[in-house]
């Protein structure tokens, strides 16, 4: 009897899947390790890994779409795709425009990097950040002159060629750049915690998709697979989800590796 019901349930689900249109998820593909374009020319990274896992659990068929950061919000609101997974922090400003699921990456630190550790990052300094990010907002408020770039990579390049004194971005993005620069780049000052973590952006009217993704994310947090993906994509010292969804370090996290 139990088997029969299971079979019926599977049938019902797969039948539903056949009818439903695929969920289109947009990403930028220029913000490793969150999202990047790999050497095969496909989107790859933490966002994509989490997204695929969510889709698997929520029994959704998902398609990835590359979209420029500048037009990523208007295109979502205009229904050109259904969700954004592009390392986008949950902020109040964005919440006025779109809805977010619960975070799939804990509130992480942003950091300043410059050519020397004692570079000026406050009043009178020129600091590079990507356009329309929480980091750009923070720099504008800090009293430093904000130098905006369309892509994250250009912000780092601006520091290397002296256009800006420092770059301000997610620490996880800057980490490989600083570590592999042979001492050319250095951290400046303290890390700055910003935002409410990274969530999946969905349309405010699309509560169904949001709830489905939320349910999948809750399950992934519970069984530790989300932490497994964080471990896979991020360097040592990344933050993980604790038992109640709070940010903890690696020692306090339950980590389950995800089968490829």
């Amino acid at each position: 009897m139990k088997k029969l019901m299971l079979a019926a349930a599977t049938l019902a689900l797969t039948a539903g899947m056949g009818l439903a249109a695929p969920v289109r998820i947009a990403s930028e593909g220029a913000y490793p390790p969150y999202n990047l374009v790999n050497d095969a020319g496909e989107l790859d990274g933490f966002d994509i890994a989490v997204g695929n896992e969510i889709c698997k659990r929520a029994e959704l068929e998902c398609v990835w779409v590359k979209n420029d950061w500048d037009s990523i919000l208007p295109n979502l609101k205009s229904s050109n795709y259904d969700a954004i997974m592009a390392g986008m922090s949950i902020t109040d400003e964005r919440k006025a425009e779109i809805d977010f699921t619960q975070n799939y990456f804990p509130p992480a630190a942003s950091a300043y990097a410059a050519l020397s550790a004692d570079a000026n990052i406050g009043e009178g300094a020129v600091v590079a950040a990507q356009t329309a990010t929480i980091q750009a907002g923070h720099v504008a408020e800090s009293g430093a002159t904000l130098l905006e770039f369309a892509t994250p990579d250009e912000t780092v390049a601006a520091v290397r060629n002296g256009e800006a004194e420092a770059v301000f971005a997610d620490k996880d993005f800057l980490e490989p750049a600083v570590n592999e620069s042979n001492g050319e780049l250095a951290w400046v000052g303290e890390d700055v915690p910003l935002g409410g973590g990274i969530g999946v952006g969905v349309r405010q009217s699309d509560t169904e998709l949001r709830d489905k993704m939320n349910a999948a994310l809750t399950a992934m947090k519970e069984d530790g697979t989300l932490n497994g993906l964080i471990e896979k994509w991020f360097a040592e010292g990344a933050v993980y989800f604790g038992p109640n969804g709070e940010a903890v370090d690696k020692a306090g996290a339950k980590i389950t590796a995800v089968a490829e």
Binding site: G29, A30, P32, P33, L36, V37, N38, D39, T151, D153, E154, V156, A157, P176, A177, E180
Partner: peptide
């Protein structure tokens, strides 16, 4: 812009 951007060890090249 995408290809010219500096690539860390996470990439194949």
């Amino acid at each position: 812009r995408q290809l010219g951007a500096s690539k860390t060890q996470a990439f194949a090249y």
